[in-house]
Design a binder for these strands. Structure first.
Lengths: 225, 225
DNA sequence: CGCGGGTTTGATCCCAGTCAAGTCCCGTGG
DNA sequence: CCACGGGACTTGACTGGGATCAAACCCGCG
């Protein structure tokens, strides 16, 4: 979840290094013992779990400003893998500096908790989507959310399109649909939104919101500090 | 997520009161502005979202030891309603004491973050379940998890059954299945686990794990402090 | 020019949703 | 004591959304 520029400046002082990933590279795998967590400087990736039968569930897209791996460091083991889809740059923070952060910078620690809470909010929405919405509603919801989040971190161009380097199969895995059905459903939405050469273009937010049945809570307010 | 006895003792000093709920009572509704968060002393409830069309998604069961509403206080508005299913007792904590907590008790603040992280872990698993598993797998997974969590807080009786006052419709809403299909699927599982007069009896954990295709990570370790 | 990954599109199948009756089990009141 | 009613649970018949299988198509690339 996004940080303010000021927060990022602060975090820079606490970081232990920078990580660069090419598309396809893993930041970490499932069940890996984590000693660091990261913030995303640029690029896009995917966080997902794999079940025994090989099925993949993309838990969430990871975008610039997001924080990843906090849960993994804090509980001791990661619960999902994180893989780059577009070239990524991240800042690494060592788990063992966390106590120091909490002790010396309560306001920052609070911000961290705030972020975890927002994350929880998102996951709750995703659960509602997977549990109750049909294919059209899921796609409309997902495209809308993705656009909102990327636009919120300034990645929308003049035409209102945002970078979206994922394949349709990724979307399918995120929404619990088959690749084929995802494709057919995307076709139905083409007049309102479109996936084209690595970008997502949304023509009619209104219509998508309508189709998604989303109790849209809109973009989330940033913490006061 | 569960607290240790020691943590609970500490929290007692920070609380602002106790809340008692009868079955059906709401702790708070969706979109309600929250100024407090709560820990569950006893009883059981449900946290759920309602979409515009009236469909309900039960985001998670709330059990003794759980923390609820932190996300709501921290982001400003609740994202889901919490309703009691069995009589509940909870401790209330005012949001405005949070800065004080973070400033004066970094270890406790850390524990709070830890809890949020664990919550995130659970929600991720739920997402994988809703996205990838079929009806039998979902039910097997859910029954297993519920039993694990309730047993972990000491609610299993000698026979290994745990209190489960929910109706089949609640389970259905939690798993994104219809009531009818949930019922039929439960019938298929009856030799391994059973819902009976407000209790859940699990006869064969092994078998359920097998059926659920769960990469079972088992019960989660508690934080060091 | 052929190859491979991603995208489309068509045909078929089946899991789970929907509709519709029951059945059980209470608690209430005559 | 029994009739009644309502809520939860069952069960059966039918339907449909989305999965699966299969085959093109459309590039960019060696």
């Amino acid at each position: 979840m996004p940080f303010t520029a000021e927060e990022l400046r602060f975090m820079m002082r606490f970081r232990e290094g920078e990580v660069t990933l090419d598309p396809g590279d893993y930041l970490f795998h499932e069940d890996e013992a984590l000693t660091s967590f990261y913030t995303v400087r640029s690029g896009q990736g995917a966080r997902y779990k794999t079940l025994e039968n090989g099925d993949r569930q993309l838990v969430n897209f990871v975008f610039p400003g997001d924080l990843v791996g906090l849960a993994g460091t804090v509980t001791g083991a990661t619960t999902a893998a994180v893989q780059a889809v577009a070239p990524m740059r991240l800042c690494r923070f060592r788990k063992n500096r966390l106590p120091e952060l909490f002790a010396g910078h309560p306001d920052r620690a609070y911000a961290l908790t705030w972020i975890a809470a927002v994350e929880e909010h998102f996951l709750g929405e995703t659960i509602a989507t997977l549990g109750q919405r049909n294919a059209i509603q899921r796609l409309a919801w997902a495209l809308l959310k993705v656009h909102q989040r990327l636009a919120a971190v300034g990645l929308a161009d003049g035409a209102g399109t945002v970078p979206f380097p994922y394949r349709q199969g990724d979307l399918a895995d995120a929404l619990g649909l088959s690749l084929v059905h995802t494709n057919k459903t995307l076709a139905q939405l083409r007049s309102w939104a479109r996936l084209e050469n690595g970008r997502l273009a949304v023509f009619d937010h209104q219509k998508l919101a309508e189709l998604s049945l989303s109790n849209d809570d809109g973009p989330i307010r940033r913490p006061l500090l």
